[in-house]
Design a protein around this nucleic acid. Structure first.
Length: 283
DNA sequence: CACCATGTTCCTTG
DNA sequence: CCAAGGAACATGGT
């Protein structure tokens, strides 16, 4: 699931369902997910606590809870890693095989499922402090973006994945934004012209905003995470027929560029796949 | 068997 | 000290 748009859509769903609910029991099936928080500390902080709010920062989810004892507030941080999912189920629904953490909310269970266990659910908030500006707010300005890019000779595609430059862009939307901006993923960050930086800034915002819009039009399915519509490929259930392709280059190696028809290329940068069009993205 | 996968962090090398 | 590259984490799909 996990780039900014998917996390944002998830946050909106959880914001609708979680506030007001009290955690009765905490079941941890994989302590790795809590790192570096201990199971004992998490259980102590969460048991009896009531959800107050849900927010998002980059690819992170922030859950604010009011602890059982006093007025003291608890903040829990969530990250989906590569394969994480969070959803509510009715109590009679058996938890999935890779349910890492289960919070008993009374009538329902809150499930954090993660097949690869790269995700996190923790009381350690230090990761958030290192994040760069939120791309869809005024904090992310072309000027600030340009200043960051000037400091690095890394390929621009790799730099877009640096969460301290801008928070929330992942491997898919990095390729998509560069395609829309007509910029080669191999160009050194500090060699982009100011015009290119401005264009890319706009396309990063556009691609993320469109993806949120797409995902948020799909209703969540409370009984499982399988069909909540928050997926990258294909078409969402109920989406109109004229909706063509969500992604223009990602995972389309060898297929014709939708703009010029030449085959989309796949290259490897920093051990991750990059997809782009040679003709439309020169320098 | 081989290679690939939406992410982050740690280690090594230069 | 920093930048850059690669491996590691863990499981599943093709």
């Amino acid at each position: 699931m996990p780039e900014l748009p998917e996390v944002e859509v998830l946050a909106r769903h959880l914001r609708r369902d979680l506030p007001g609910k009290t955690i009765r029991k905490v079941q941890v099936n994989r302590i790795r997910i809590l790192r570096p928080t201990s199971e004992r500390k998490l259980r102590a902080a969460l048991t009896g606590a009531k959800f107050k709010s849900v927010s998002r920062r980059g690819k992170y989810l922030l859950f604010e809870l009011q602890s059982k004892a006093g007025r003291k507030n608890v903040v829990m941080l969530g990250h989906l890693g590569m394969t994480g999912k969070m959803f509510l189920t009715l109590k009679n629904v058996p938890p999935p095989k890779h349910a890492a953490v289960i919070l008993d909310l009374g009538k329902t269970n809150f499930i954090f499922e993660d097949t690869r266990y790269f995700g996190r659910l923790t009381l350690d908030l230090s990761a958030v402090a290192k994040l760069g500006p939120e791309p869809l707010t005024g904090d992310f300005t072309p000027e600030r973006f340009a200043r960051e890019l000037k400091r690095s000779r890394q390929a621009i595609k790799v730099k877009l994945l640096d969460q301290s430059v801008v928070a929330g862009v992942g491997n898919i939307y990095a390729s998509e934004a560069l395609f829309r901006a007509g910029i080669s993923p191999k160009t050194a960050a500090n060699r982009l012209t100011l015009a290119q930086v401005k264009k890319l800034h706009g396309m990063v915002r556009e691609v993320l905003a469109e993806a949120i819009e797409f995902g948020s039009t799909v209703p969540i399915n409370l009984s499982g995470a399988k069909s909540d519509g928050l997926f990258y490929f294909g078409r969402a259930v109920g989406a109109p027929d004229f909706y063509v392709e969500r992604l223009r280059v990602y995972d389309r190696a060898g297929k014709p560029c939708q703009h010029c028809g030449s085959p989309i290329r796949r290259i490897v940068q920093a051990a991750r796949s990059t997809f782009f069009c040679l003709k439309c993205q020169k320098v």
